Simulated assay, not measured.
Amino acid sequence: MEHTPSESEGAWRVGQLAGLTGVTVRTLRYYDQAGLLHPSAQTSGGHRLYDHANVVRLYRILALRRLQFTLAEIRSLLDDPDWDLASMVARHAAETDRDLAATARLSTHLRAINGEIVHAGAASLERLFSIMEEMAMLDTPIRSTTTLLVYDNLTDAYAYLTGTFGLAAGALERGPDGQAVHGELFAGDQAIWLHPSGDGYRSPRELGGVSSMVVVGVDDADAHYAHAVEHGAEILSEPVDQPYGVREYGARDLEGHLWYFHGPIG
């Protein structure tokens, strides 16, 4: 029987690390694929193992994301020889204190404006300006999103999306029977996961319609359009300048998902 490493041994499997940190297994796999956090080793059964240095590095990634660095910036900062854990924790603490102070001020303003509304039936503009200022300071802790698309055939979809639409290739994982069970692609810093059809999951081709679409920013919409056409894409609309300031075209992929690609005008 394969030995399961424990925390006392300074090694954690991906599921154990996810449980201890609140970071999902899929996010850890994404960080691995993106070159941010590679496991220190693997068990004989192929399970990822993370050591103490990995844990510290994961904290750095999460803290830098919290401080609103992009993934590209984080990638360069992670290997900075002058980095110091104490300085990072101190900066994180200062950022947290700032958020707490802003939250306290916002709470004070909200209670005051509620009192004004109750007694006078209206709120002063001064109070409203204060509330909006504090809301802007708090911002949102959400830093990224991952798109999940369902396909009947993940292998064909993976090949189509990388070859036709030029998405960056990530992992394509297969089950014991050789069938693809999970695919990862990237549009810039954003991950796109491919999920197989099954109970509760259906591709647009199976459903006979769509309820969403994927919008991707590119450097040159016309060049991207030409590449897609050359590779046999089903075009819904040719590149056109939109009133909202982008040049955009639309396409449908091999299982019916809608894609729109836009770039700068002119």
Rank of each mutant, 00 (worst) to 15 (best):
V25T: 07
E206R: 10
A18K: 13
T24L: 06
A226T: 12
A86K: 15
E9V: 07
Y31K: 04
V181Q: 12
G163H: 11
E2L: 13
Y260I: 11
P239F: 00
V55C: 00
R66C: 04
I142P: 08
D82C: 09
G163V: 08
P204D: 06
H224Q: 10
S211G: 14
E248W: 12
L172T: 06
D253L: 05
G15V: 09
V216I: 13
R26Q: 15
L154I: 04
T96M: 08
D220R: 04
G19S: 15
L149Q: 05
G188M: 05
A101F: 05
R48E: 01
L148K: 15
F261K: 02
A223F: 12
D82T: 14
E255K: 02
H52C: 02
Q33K: 11
R91Q: 14
T140K: 06
A41D: 07
A53D: 03
L28N: 13
P39S: 03
I235N: 06
L58T: 04
V150N: 00
H227V: 02
G15Y: 15
R252V: 04
R105A: 08
S107W: 06
G170W: 05
A233E: 05
E230K: 15
G163P: 10
R26V: 03
V56H: 04
H231K: 11
P5A: 10
H38C: 14
Y244G: 00
A72H: 06
G45E: 09
R111E: 07
D97R: 13
V55P: 02
G250V: 12
L64W: 08
A228D: 04
R105C: 03
A251T: 01
S8C: 11
G209L: 02
D156G: 03
L148S: 10
G10V: 01
A226S: 04
Y249C: 08
D222A: 01
P141G: 02
P264L: 08
Q190W: 10
G200Q: 05
G263E: 05
A94L: 00
T162D: 00
G245C: 05
I142A: 02
Y201A: 13
A101R: 07
A228R: 03
P5T: 05
A169Y: 13
T96F: 15
L161Y: 14
S130K: 12
W259V: 00
G46R: 00
L62H: 10
P243Y: 05
L85S: 09
A233F: 15
L185S: 01
G208I: 04
A63K: 08
D80F: 12
L172M: 09
Q242P: 03
L258E: 00
H257K: 10
G22Y: 15
A223P: 11
L236E: 07
L172D: 04
L128T: 09
G166K: 14
S107P: 06
Q190E: 06
I131D: 00
D189R: 10
H257W: 07
V150I: 07
E116V: 09
P196W: 00
P5V: 05
R13A: 14
I113Y: 14
T96H: 15
G198C: 00
A223R: 14
N114W: 11
A90C: 02
R13Y: 06
